[in-house]
């Protein structure tokens, strides 16, 4: 093994990481209102701007901490690694960079968890890993999670964030859309509940597969959600897009999401939805009402 090779690239990446950390700094500027936010305030406020409510992008570990009951998250398939299936130029290097930037092995974290006491299978995609692009590892982990949930009778809660397909995996990336959709379908046919939470940005092949398959589709305020990227649409129609196009609010108006829930309220809303879909609570209600529901 070439140890020098191992040393060189992490060094470059550490420099990069250092610069990013500096950018985040003690204060962080809100991309929407420009207010300088003390990092501690931002962290305390779940990375939502205290001045304007802008929802910063966050990684899966933060979301899992915001969402799940302490110590309840049990990660699944955490060791799957993407391979350079097509011998695609520079893909290996991109994967290495993404691992360093995100401190994850690929663009989704999956596992079992409790949310306000309700068990569920959970997946959370990662904007810091190649902008959540879907390759075979993303598709495989999500498929396995749905198969696990189908087998154990668990609901699935999924947070999506994705720029679209993992181009470097070519047709294998496209096939993930089919694979995940089929697994979602089997979970649904077993009568199990699937909740998606669309976060900024959710686009391309993820939108056109499991993101839009939820029984209930929730979105984070202001999130960009769509199939085609805004630039591609502008090039196609040769016009500027109207203000607010492809936002969570736009999708709500057009009937494609059920509800928009700010980050601070997501845990509570998700807990309620899980409770409402818990076959156990229906059984209990029946008992309390003396079989009056039959």
């Amino acid at each position: 093994m070439n140890l020098m090779g191992l040393f060189r690239s992490p060094q470059n990446e550490l420099e990069k990481g250092g610069k990013e950390a500096e950018d985040a700094g003690i204060r962080s500027a809100c991309p929407r209102c420009g207010v300088q936010l003390p990092l501690s305030d931002l962290q305390e406020n779940m990375n939502v701007c205290t001045a304007c409510g802008y929802h910063f992008r966050v990684g899966p570990r933060e979301r899992i901490a915001y969402l799940t009951d302490e110590g309840s998250f049990y990660e699944l398939d955490g060791d799957l690694l993407s391979r350079d299936l097509l011998d695609f130029p520079a893909y290996d290097q991109k994967l290495r960079n993404a691992k360093l930037a995100s401190r994850e092995k690929d663009a989704v974290v999956t596992g079992a968890a409790h949310i306000l006491g309700h068990p569920c299978a959970l997946f959370v995609m990662d904007p810091n890993f190649m902008m959540g692009s879907m390759g075979t590892v993303v598709g495989e982990k999500i498929t396995r999670l749905f198969e696990f949930a189908t087998g154990t009778g668990a609901p699935v809660v999924g947070f999506t964030v994705s720029g679209g397909a993992r181009m470097q995996e070519g047709i294998h990336s496209l096939m993930q859309m089919a694979k995940t959709s089929a697994a979602v379908r089997r979970h649904g046919e077993a009568g199990l509940f699937y909740l998606t939470v669309l976060t900024d940005p959710t686009t391309g092949g993820v939108t056109a597969s499991f993101a839009m398959d939820g029984d209930v589709i929730m979105a984070e305020p202001g999130a960009t959600i769509g199939f085609a990227g805004a630039r591609v649409i502008e090039q196609t129609i040769r016009k500027k897009l109207p203000q607010g196009f492809q936002t969570a609010e736009f999708l709500l108006d057009h009937g494609f999401v059920d509800l928009i829930v700010p980050r601070a309220q997501q845990r509570e809303t998700i807990g309620r939805l899980l409770q409402l879909h818990d076959p156990g609570s229906i059984g209990m209600a029946e008992e309390e009402m003396g079989g009056g529901l039959e």
Binding site: S181, T203, T207, A208, S209, F210, A211, M212, D213, G226, F227, A228, H254, G255, F256
Partner: peptide
């Protein structure tokens, strides 16, 4: 809903 149509 192009994405939703394909997903469905």
């Amino acid at each position: 809903g192009q994405g939703q149509a394909i997903a469905e």
